[in-house]
Amino acid sequence: MEAQPIISIQHLSKTFYTKTSEVHALQDINLDILPGQIYGIIGMSGAGKSTLVRCMNFLEKPTGGTVLFDGVDLGAMNAQALNEARRSMGMIFQQFNLLMQRTALQNICFPLEIAGVKKEAAVARAKELLEIVDLADKANAYPSQLSGGQKQRIAIARALATSPKVLLCDEATSALDPKTTRSILTLLRDINRRLGITVIIITHEMSVIEEICTHVAIIADSKIAESGTVQDIFTHPQTAAAQRLVFHRAGNVEQSVGNNALRIVFNGNASSEPVIAGMVLEFKSPVNIMYADTRDIDGKAFGQMVLQMPEDAAIAEKMKYYLTTHGLTVEEVQYNV
């Protein structure tokens, strides 16, 4: 039996009305997020993804449809019940949104104060959380004295203070450099694994999705274009919107590679095995690596590569077969992106 979704969104729509026009930010969104998932929601800016995450905790009230949190309809709650529900959903932001006049420790105490937790208990819990985010030495620092990555760690600790079931991340790494981004993502994965908190990540960067998400929904033009496991979407993107995101970096290369190019997806193959080199040695014919974006995670290779195959169609065909038998997903490059 499948677990009950922690967040279930049904036929959700959100329209903003201005004096002269109406903007359909979201249209007929359906999404089930199960406990324990790291669910990525990706889209170009203006696609409606930030509005979608705000509908999950009713910072934005949807104009249609329902949002069920742990089986209960948020739209049917009174103000007090909604505030209670929000305490079960932590949220972090692109600009961190820390209270500038409070120290790191006081910032983490803030949601506990709001929830009416006694001061000693709140401070004890805040210290515990500072340990989790690895910033115990910064308890008395003010946000202005912290780096971007440290601020986001404090914001994460603050979001976790009330022991939420879900952590909503709105472009949480978009203001950070790549190295800091990776360390924040690692922290989020740890939190997901160790504390069992469902993590929902809004981003415009495919690399963030690849890095830690188990599931992904692609949002384009106010609708969900495609959703599923990251593996499925990454290897077999069905819609134009998904293909654009998966190939966005390879996109420019493809225009210059001509017809006999292959896209190869590494999806957890043993990174110790030199598949491409092995293939070149076997057929004694070189291939041209036009584009490569692979990385090694726990001894497994993930990522993609675009190869220009030899002119000889027979060898190219054999090579394709070789790659397939070595467990790689191979596609002719023919997307119009």
Binding site: G90, F93, P111, T162
Partner: peptide
């Protein structure tokens, strides 16, 4: 910063708490 107010709302703060504590 309106973002800080939004953060407080996401934690379930009431209006009075937003005024006095934010």
């Amino acid at each position: 910063d309106p973002g800080v107010i939004e953060a407080a709302q996401s934690m379930g703060a009431t209006r009075a708490q937003i005024v006095w504590k934010v």
